[in-house]
Structures are given as structure tokens and as C-alpha cells.
């Protein structure tokens, strides 16, 4: 059985589903039996989800003046090229 430290080292790859089949089974085996690692893993998973939601939320919007300036530039470039 992997130690908690060994499981920790594989946590990111496990989270991203990037572990090989056998390693994945070993980590899964450990996490099912170790409450501490399970709890930490859940926190990582929840964190990853929150980060994804942060991305989906978009973030700070462009300043309206900057935005309309860029739209005008886009329009201008089309007129020039097309």
C-alpha cells in the first residue's frame, strides 16, 4: 500500500486523471481506506472546481471605453483588409 506521502505526490495527476491504470488503482485503494487522505483529496477536488468556476465567471470586465476602442479597431482592420 502506498504511504500518505506517496499518495500526496500523485495527488495532482490523480486529480487530473493522468495516472496510469495501476497507479490509479493504488491511489484509489489508499484513499478508500485513509480518512485523512480522503478528506484532503475532497478539498483538492472542491478547490479545482472553484477555480474552474472562477474561469467560467470571466473575471474583471474590460473598461467600457477600452472595449469600444478595441471594437472600433477590429472594425477598422476588417475595412482595411477586407
Amino acid at each position: 500500500m502506498l504511504s500518505c506521502e506517496e499518495v500526496g505526490e500523485r495527488s495532482s495527476a490523480w486529480l487530473d486523471d493522468e495516472l496510469g491504470w495501476w497507479e490509479g488503482r493504488l491511489v484509489n485503494f489508499h484513499i478508500k481506506r485513509c480518512a485523512m487522505c480522503r478528506s484532503v483529496y475532497e478539498q483538492y477536488r472542491s478547490m479545482k472546481q472553484s477555480l474552474a468556476e472562477l474561469g467560467e465567471g470571466g473575471g474583471a470586465a474590460l473598461d467600457p471605453e477600452v472595449r469600444s476602442g478595441l471594437m472600433a479597431e477590429f472594425r477598422g482592420s476588417v475595412d482595411r483588409d477586407g
Binding site: C4, E5, E6, V7, G8, E9, S11, M36, C37, S39, V40, E42, Q43, S46, M47, S50, E53, L54, G57
Partner: peptide, 25 residues
């Protein structure tokens, strides 16, 4: 670079650990 289990007790995974969702960005 493991789970950082060593600094866990000060924070979120105390024995009565609850799932903490960092909902608000």
C-alpha cells in the same frame, strides 16, 4: 510537495473536518 498533511491541523482538516467549499470566488 505531498498533501501538506503536516500543516493540516492548523486548518481545515481537523478531526471534525467538514467539507469546505470555496464557493465565492
Amino acid at each position: 510537495g505531498g498533501w501538506l498533511v503536516t500543516d493540516a491541523p492548523e486548518g481545515i482538516d481537523s478531526p471534525e473536518a467538514e467539507t469546505i467549499a470555496w464557493e465565492a470566488s
